[in-house]
Design a protein around this nucleic acid. Sequence first.
DNA 1: CCTGCCAATCGTATATCGACGATGCACGCT
DNA 2: AGCGTGCATCGTCGATATACGATTGGCAGG
Lengths: 112, 112
Amino acid sequence: MTKPSTQACCPPAEPMPPVPRDPLEADAQLARLAKAIAHPARVAIIRLLVRQEGCIVGDIVEELPLAQSTISQHLKQLKEAGLIRGEVDGPRVCYCVEPGAVALFKTLVEAL
Amino acid sequence: MTKPSTQACCPPAEPMPPVPRDPLEADAQLARLAKAIAHPARVAIIRLLVRQEGCIVGDIVEELPLAQSTISQHLKQLKEAGLIRGEVDGPRVCYCVEPGAVALFKTLVEAL
DNA sequence: CCTGCCAATCGTATATCGACGATGCACGCT
DNA sequence: AGCGTGCATCGTCGATATACGATTGGCAGG
């Protein structure tokens, strides 16, 4: 097994999520995270990555009815929001969720 | 008590939240709700209404550093997303959260 | 009835989003 | 070394978001 297929990326990830204590900061953080998933395509991408059904960009492109460049843009937005991480794995790029960020988002939403 | 002050609006609200079963529909719904709170001002408004610290538009306008017309726009977006409800109370308008919609949002986020 | 006030709406300017095709860049392979 | 593949970035376009001041509309009070 020199090639562990498609799940060799980002295994343990962050240990825990940071939580802002300033209320205004929390509002801004929640708004930022919400904006990141405020599009059906990005929700679908997050779901795909959480379910581990694909981690490679090519798989995502095949799953969604959007152009490759568009997918790349959505991935960029998700990455900038800190919700996902991307690692270069040879000629491909492997994306996976940042569990801490997702947990933080859930916490902030629950605190509404 | 002919004038029960500022909390006479939308008391019992909806009994329960509807939950979409179609995955694509769920994605769209989550994206729509997320977009509604994808702005710090709207997050702040939701928090104000949840904490019942104000229900009248004038109170919200005084709390946030934004013009009255801008607040009104944000309220409109939140209302169109189904997250809040507005009732005319004499010359004023009373807004409050739609608990069912908030619960649905929390459920959808938790299901990520 | 006319005149307040409070909130919604209109009109506008600027910035960002969302989509695509075309191009650029880095990596493996032969 | 050269080539092909896979993803990111650029440039563009229309649509939408965000903010404000100005105006309109509805509801009590004089």
